[in-house]
Design a protein around this nucleic acid. Structure first.
Lengths: 199, 199
DNA sequence: ATCTTTATTCATCATGTGATGAAATGTATG
DNA sequence: CATACATTTCATCACATGATGAATAAAGAT
């Protein structure tokens, strides 16, 4: 039917696939999205997905989820400044990243995929608990002096707070959270986190 | 190979399937669990799943997720007692239900399935926001007087708090939250919820 | 102008899925 | 004892999935 061979003009197929995949993964999660569906969304033959992403679906997913956002740097930035405003900086940074249309589909896709794959869940668990909020705890003048069990608890409380915010606002779409401007959420949630650090 | 026909002895196949399904749905989510896998886990021919649950996978899922736990009654119970301890009662009730081995697999399965199916997400969104925490807001002497937008925000904040707790403690398994006894979590989280109601 | 590389389409494969029909065999009922 | 019914096994269906091989045409290099 269609003419075979290379298409004229430099249509950036690879990018089209990546973007379609981002959307599909965000909307349906890893298991729910199909190669064919992604190809369809990109207006492209399914075979091309394999052509551009050797390793198929999982390779594509890996590339989609490779967010150009250095968590270590972000954490470092949060840690700068007065410790009594760490909570505010955490929430504000978090919302800024998640509200950014450049990152949002990727992050939503990522967080939805987390609950499907057991291995990924363990990986995230260690990552979030240790690399992100563990760092925050370790840098806080009061919290750093607590016994390990207490530190883990605080990290867990903060992590669950942010997890709930991400899911409520961006995945489930709880109206109260979706409609609220970022500033309002910072105002409400920052003190909670600050409390988990200081009290 | 195996002898056909009705098996001797009163093996309660239906229950076996239900329990296997509960486990599979909890472990893999709705999409991830397969009829054949459930049948295998129950030690039963796949056809029997259709035999006992007319409507197949979705009917089975519906039945599995029909928790014998009346949310309205639970909410009503929470609303009894002094308003200044509503937060505490919410968190305590929540943890009691989720820590109960009778409910836990079902609830975990349910919450994991929520993020896969778009329709289910919308359903839960309305349910959680309106039926559960909307009720709580409506019953609180201070929060009930707030403008609608504020009430929705408070409900969202509380819902996201509990959502994060459920995911952190029971799904992702953040160590700090898993190891903490229920009492400790009540101690930490109840004031936050109370604050969302009163301030 | 020729050759190589890349992009694209088409045609299948093997596998796993949920679903259904039909046969066989036990238990219960008359 | 005979008949009806519920339970179980087997055999497929139709379909979607991810993956791969092969053919073809454009673009780029020499």
């Amino acid at each position: 039917m269609n003419p075979r061979g290379r298409r004229p003009g430099g249509a950036d197929t690879r990018t089209a696939i990546l973007e379609a995949a981002r959307g599909e993964f965000a909307a349906r999660g890893y298991a729910g999205a199909s190669l064919r569906g992604i190809a369809r969304a990109a207006g492209v033959d399914p075979r091309l997905v394999h052509h551009y992403f050797e390793g198929g679906k999982s390779a594509l997913f890996t590339e989609v989820m490779a967010i150009p956002l250095d968590p270590a740097a972000t954490v470092a930035k949060i840690l700068q400044g007065p410790p009594e405003q760490i909570g505010e900086r955490i929430v504000r940074t978090f919302l800024t990243v998640w509200d950014d249309p450049q990152y949002q589909p990727t992050l939503v896709g990522f967080i939805r995929s987390v609950f499907v794959d057991e291995a990924r869940m363990v990986q995230v668990q260690g990552y979030v608990a240790t690399d992100i909020f563990g760092q925050v705890i370790a840098a806080h003048p009061h919290a750093r002096q607590l016994p390990p069990r207490e530190r883990a608890l605080r990290a867990g409380l903060i992590a669950s707070q942010m997890l709930g915010l991400a899911l409520g606002r961006y995945v489930v779409g709880l109206p109260g959270l979706v409609r609220a401007p970022a500033g309002t959420l910072v105002e409400r949630i920052a003190p909670v986190i600050q409390g988990h650090l200081e009290r």
